[in-house]
Computed example of a mutant assay.
Amino acid sequence: MTRSNTARRTVAALLTAGVSAVLMTAAPAHADSNDSCHPSGAMPRVGVFGNEFAPAPSDPLVRAQGWVDAGLTCSPMGSFGGYRTDAGGYAAMAWRLTESMEPSELLSTGSVTPLAGRDDLAPGDGLLNPAGFGHAVVFDHWADDAHTSYLGYEFTAAGVQHRTIPYPYFAGQGDFRPVRAAR
């Protein structure tokens, strides 16, 4: 191969990589809980199974990061590791719940319990908006000493993310409450 052809292929590869990087970073600054990947209507529950089939290890943050690393895309009709690939399935997986359900069902089924407030949040807890289909975020840790923002794991229409979120969630996106998974 000539130097000219090698140079053209190198430039083409770099341009392709650059365009891909731009497209991958073009996600919105935040995800609207109403901009979820839920079509209208009830979502199927993906199997009822025992905790013995939930992904190891026991740390919910390690399990949450596993889905970030897998680069999953939101599809409420799909599943990964026995859990729906949406916000409800993601939270259920991280918290090792026995079934994948809508975030709106988590409180009513006793799968999570409300916490008194932000100061009670610990790594692996969550923020839950039970309205409509709802949305859930797995709490990682506080991003600042004033507890005005935190790092959280969430599954949005843009995919699984680990990012900084203002407490309790982005303005205008619903009534998010701190919760702890029933263990």
Rank of each mutant, 00 (worst) to 15 (best):
A26K: 02
P60K: 02
Y90T: 02
G82D: 03
A31G: 12
G81E: 11
C74P: 06
M43S: 02
Q65L: 06
A26G: 06
A27P: 03
S108H: 11
S75T: 07
G110I: 11
C37T: 06
G18K: 01
E102Q: 13
A42M: 05
V68C: 07
V68T: 04
D120E: 12
A42F: 08
A94S: 15
F53N: 07
T25K: 06
T109C: 08
T113V: 13
P103C: 07
F133H: 13
L107Q: 04
S58K: 04
A92G: 12
C74D: 10
A56L: 10
V68N: 11
A64G: 06
P114M: 00
G110A: 13
S20V: 08
S108K: 14
G126R: 04
C37F: 09
A54E: 01
S100Q: 05
F80S: 05
D59V: 00
S100C: 07
M24D: 11
T113H: 04
G117D: 15
A26P: 03
G110Q: 15
M93C: 10
S79H: 14
L128Q: 09
E52V: 01
S58D: 14
P103N: 03
P123N: 07
S100L: 04
A92Q: 05
L23Q: 12
L107I: 05
W67S: 06
D86T: 02
R96Y: 00
P123L: 02
L61K: 15
G50C: 03
G124M: 03
G71N: 13
A92I: 03
D59S: 05
M77Y: 14
A92H: 03
G82L: 01
D125T: 01
G71C: 09
V22A: 12
L14M: 08
M43P: 00
W67E: 09
G71Y: 07
A64I: 00
H30D: 12
G50I: 01
S75Q: 12
A94P: 11
V46W: 05
M101C: 14
M101A: 10
P60D: 01
A17I: 07
P44D: 06
P55N: 02
G132S: 12
S40G: 12
S36Q: 05
L23E: 11
F133P: 13
L72A: 07
D69K: 15
Q65E: 14
D69L: 13
L72V: 06
M77H: 10
D119N: 11
L61E: 09
S58G: 13
A70P: 13
D35T: 03
H38N: 08
R118E: 07
A27M: 09
T25W: 11
S79E: 15
A87S: 15
F53P: 04
G132K: 13
D69C: 08
A94G: 15
D119K: 09
G78F: 00
G18N: 11
S108W: 12
P114F: 01
P39Y: 04
T98P: 14
S36V: 02
G126Q: 03
C74L: 03
L115T: 06
G47D: 07
R45V: 11
L97A: 01
D125N: 04
N129F: 07
A56C: 04
V48K: 14
M93Y: 09
N34I: 05
V19W: 14
P103V: 01
E102M: 13
